[in-house]
């Protein structure tokens, strides 16, 4: 832009060329032309306008420095340049909001997916262990200890195969874990029952209570779903035809071993020794490890 100063000092007399003084004197006598007033006005007007532009830019810059920081403008908090028009700031804001909303939507979707993935495991356990699973486990344990009753075999195939109305629609996904948990608890109950008879007796009593609560279970859809998953003995027995014996001593697959033994005692007491012997033999066959009372043990040993 600017020219460096020459090494020669201009204040020192420069080297004078031959005839220069005469030519210089004659040149100074030439007409001294000057620019016109219009040209002067144009130049001065341009200079004034340049200063006005500077003042306007400086004012805008100062106002912007004094202004609060624009929201979302972290890259250029307060630049000294001219403030951007309102339209550009408005264009930046949606871009920022779109990014934030997208991230929030992703986090929400991931959380919901994780929650849905975890919910069957976390929610089924208390439900299964609360009301349905104990009853189902007791029923399964009783069924496993009960003799192979001819009643289920005698039941009509269509009735045995058809589940209760509550089980007609396909079971939802949440029912499967519950069923699995109930089966596991039933198996554990069976193991416990094989080890201790007292526990089985208590389970039999509980099963009797559960039998009385069958209607309530039918009203409960969760219990119905759980019962529909396995071929429940209760459902099968409910569909079986009534046996020819009296109601008190009739064989019932839903009976616990203790109840069956009581009925066998009643049969012996009523004089139906043949039927009692058959049922006692069947009981012994079904429950070989069951410790029989001494009087029944004696009856069993008799030919």
């Amino acid at each position: 832009m600017t020219t460096p100063l020459p090494p020669h000092d201009p204040r020192e007399p420069d080297e004078t060329l031959p005839g220069e003084a005469e030519l210089a004197a004659l040149y100074r006598q030439l007409p001294q032309h000057e620019p016109g007033p219009a040209l002067d006005a144009a130049v001065l007007r341009a200079a004034a306008q340049a200063l006005e532009t500077d003042g306007a830019q400086r004012t805008v810059a100062v106002e912007r420095r004094k202004a609060p920081r624009e929201r979302g403008d972290w890259v250029h908090p307060k630049p000294a340049t001219r403030a951007a028009p309102a339209g550009s700031a408005r264009k930046l804001r949606p871009r920022w909001l779109v990014g934030l909303s997208s991230a929030a939507a992703l986090v929400l979707a991931a959380g919901l997916a994780w929650r849905m993935h975890e919910s069957p495991r976390t929610e089924s356990a208390p439900v299964a262990s609360g009301s349905v699973a104990p009853a189902q486990a007791e029923a399964t344990a009783a069924a496993s200890n009960a003799p192979a009753s001819p009643a289920p075999a005698a039941a009509p195939p269509e009735q045995a195969a058809s589940p209760p109305p509550a089980a007609a629609p396909p079971a939802p996904m949440a029912a499967r874990p519950r069923r699995t948990v109930a089966d596991q608890q039933a198996a554990s109950a069976v193991r416990e029952g094989r080890s201790t008879g007292a526990t089985l007796r208590a389970a039999a009593e509980a099963n009797a209570q559960a039998g009385s609560e069958t209607a309530a279970k039918a009203a409960n859809p969760v219990a119905a779903e759980a019962a529909a998953g396995t071929p429940s003995m209760q459902a099968t027995m409910a569909a079986a035809p009534a046996p020819p014996a009296t109601a008190d001593t009739a064989a019932n697959a839903g009976d616990t071993p203790a109840q069956e033994l009581d009925k066998i005692r009643q049969l012996f007491a009523q004089g139906h020794d043949d039927e009692a012997q058959q049922r006692l033999a069947a009981f012994r066959h079904a429950h070989p490890q069951w410790k029989l009372p001494p009087e029944l043990q004696a009856k069993l040993r008799q030919p």
């Binding site: 832009m1 600017t2 020219t3 460096p4 100063l5 620019p35 341009a46 200079a47 340049a50």
Partner: peptide, 30 residues
């Protein structure tokens, strides 16, 4: 006239970058 006006316009535009490294008249004539 055109050159005269254009010369002063250059001077006005360069006011913010001007540094007195030479005589103003030399810069103007340049």
């Amino acid at each position: 006239d055109e050159l005269f006006q254009e010369t002063w316009s250059r001077v006005i535009s360069a006011r913010a970058r001007y540094q007195p490294q030479a005589k103003f008249s030399t810069w103007l004539l340049q």
